[in-house]
């Protein structure tokens, strides 16, 4: 039975590994989009006017309030026409179509961003006001304060939460199998259907996911320690 996991043309091993690679690529890109969306949304909530604040609230409430699967279906079916319409606004004519890859990245990124927004907002609010006052008193410019004080401090508070968001994003990529994109879950699904060995292939997928989540958790732990290295020195 295990020969089904072999590499080469007779087994599914290489397909599964390629699928895992695709999962990782989608997850990283989606997480990147999520961080950008999350930061923008958090900035809008903290410093924006009424309109921006409202938009951010709508975004985080709606996307966190409906299942990710539904977001994927929506983008999958409606994304192409929405993109065509949006492109029309900028003077492009003709049809814009989004591949399952782009849709997967966008949909998971959208969900990721809504959760990241809450984490980032909380972290920025956790930065003691005194730190910022001190910086201002020293005559630092806004940009410099942002770069030297706010971001490093907020990042430290945000890292554990962002680590959770990453784990969620990674696992959410499994849902884009419904679009037919050949990521880890889809490959396992197809292989289990064609070989009639669902247990074997879903266990394989589960083990690979465990490796991915555990491995990335270790990386985040390192990052957390690094971000907190100044704290320990101060405390010692």
């Amino acid at each position: 039975m295990l020969d089904l996991l072999q590499f080469g043309d007779s087994g599914w091993g290489d397909e599964i590994l390629r699928g895992a690679g695709m999962t990782l690529v989608v997850a990283v890109l989606a997480y990147g989009i999520g961080l950008v969306l999350g930061s923008l949304s958090a900035a809008a909530t903290l410093a924006g006017g009424l309109l921006l604040r409202g938009a951010a609230a709508v975004y985080t409430t709606v996307v966190r309030g409906v299942p990710a699967l539904l977001v994927i279906w929506l983008l999958f079916f409606g994304g192409g026409s929405a993109a065509t319409w949006a492109a029309g606004l900028f003077g492009f004519s003709g049809r814009v179509d989004l591949s399952p890859f782009v849709i997967g990245v966008l949909a998971v990124g959208l969900v990721s961003g809504a959760y990241a927004a809450e984490v980032i907002r909380g972290a920025v609010q956790a930065v003691p006001a005194g730190q910022l006052e001190a910086a201002r008193a020293l005559g630092m410019q806004r940009g410099l304060i942002l770069r030297r004080i706010l971001v490093p401090l907020a990042l430290r508070y945000a890292l554990p939460g962002l680590s959770n968001v990453w784990q969620m994003t990674l696992k959410d990529t499994s849902l884009i199998m419904v679009t037919g994109l050949a990521e880890l879950m889809r490959v396992s699904f197809v292989a289990s259907g064609s070989t009639r060995q669902p247990f074997l292939f879903y266990i394989a997928a589960a083990v690979i996911f465990m490796l991915l989540t555990t491995g990335s958790e270790l990386l985040f732990h390192r990052a957390e320690r690094r971000a907190a290295r100044g704290v320990r020195r101060a405390g010692a």
Partner: peptide, 20 residues
């Protein structure tokens, strides 16, 4: 195990995997 794998895998494993 349950926190480090997607729910979708868990559902498929329980439904199709065990039924095998």
């Amino acid at each position: 195990v349950f926190r480090s794998t997607p729910l979708l895998v868990q559902i498929f494993l329980i439904y199709y995997g065990l039924g095998q």
